[in-house]
Amino acid sequence: MKILLTGSTGMVGSNILEHPFTRNHKLLHPRSTALDLRDYEMTKAYIKKEEPDLIIHAAGLVGGIQANINNPIGFMIDNLDMGRNVVLAAKESGVQKFLNIASSCMYPKEGENPLKEETILTGPLEPTNEGYAFAKIMVTKLCQYISETSKDLRYKTIIPCNLYGRHDKFSLEFSHMIPAVIRKIHEAKEKEANEVVIWGDGQSRREFMYAADLADFIGYAINNFKKMPQNINVGIGRDWTIEEYYRIIAKVIGYEGRFTHDLTKPSGMRQKLVDDSKLRKFGWAPSTSIEIGIKKTYEYFKKTIK
């Protein structure tokens, strides 16, 4: 197939491009300078010209708790505009297959864990990333409406758990938890610091999957597109506390200092574990353990981050 991949320079997009399944297809992966998804007319013109058989929408403005707190408008509007424009342009151009990559941030803050796909929009969202979550929900619902009202169009959504891996940003201020903690503990070891501070009480639970595994799932989903559910969680089926992640990362890096807690900082949702029942029924499972994934991510960090 001819596949258009948006967000090819981001972590998810970069891992997709590295995966062997892409060798079986012709991939279009324009940078934002060539295709600004915030511009509907540009997006529509590009899709009409290239006529892709399938679109993988991996583009988005992403970041951790602090980045979302600092820029809620950007996280909502940019992600909404990009998602809406590419979905509607695909529909108008007659693209029959669409894979939308959403986020487990869409689930209610107090939702019962594991979080089932059917619980989207059943309760208030986590305030620290509410704008981002609203945008992802709206694009997910748009894909659902198109699938329900168009005989020949199948626009489906993947809902991954938190991700980490090669091509992450490793920013203390703007990254998600694992890449930020890798940098924090690496620098603590380099400086021979005696302690590392954890935001909040460290007892919130999170599920993280190695990004290369998500790329593997996408290859599987393309080959089994017809039987894939409309919305499907993609995760590893278990979680750890934030403090446990710190300790796993410290062990990989070889840091032996102690951990303290800054209770003035937000901890986010107390738990965010996605239900993988549909995923298991669909016939796919991740292959990378948390220890191996963090080790590979740390090796990438040391080679690429100055």
Results as ranks from 00 to 15, higher is better:
238 R>I: 04
267 S>P: 05
283 G>K: 05
144 Q>V: 07
45 A>V: 03
108 P>H: 07
299 E>C: 05
194 N>S: 13
271 Q>T: 15
139 V>A: 10
37 L>I: 06
275 D>A: 04
236 I>F: 01
103 S>C: 10
51 E>M: 08
166 R>W: 02
104 S>F: 03
122 T>W: 02
227 K>V: 07
98 F>N: 10
69 I>R: 11
78 D>G: 06
183 R>C: 03
136 K>P: 08
42 M>I: 06
85 N>A: 08
30 P>R: 07
211 A>R: 03
6 T>D: 02
107 Y>R: 08
257 G>L: 08
69 I>W: 03
19 H>Q: 11
301 F>S: 04
36 D>V: 05
229 P>I: 01
299 E>P: 07
131 G>I: 13
118 E>P: 00
83 G>E: 09
23 R>M: 10
262 D>C: 06
197 V>A: 09
268 G>F: 04
22 T>G: 06
212 A>I: 11
1 M>Q: 07
66 Q>P: 02
191 K>H: 09
111 G>N: 12
214 L>C: 06
132 Y>W: 05
118 E>Q: 05
242 I>S: 01
142 L>H: 08
155 Y>K: 09
207 E>Y: 09
237 G>I: 09
181 V>H: 00
7 G>N: 02
292 I>H: 10
102 A>P: 02
13 G>H: 00
130 E>M: 13
150 S>P: 00
47 I>P: 09
223 N>F: 04
53 D>A: 13
252 V>R: 00
65 I>L: 14
109 K>S: 12
230 Q>M: 14
129 N>H: 15
48 K>N: 09
302 K>D: 01
259 F>Y: 08
287 S>T: 15
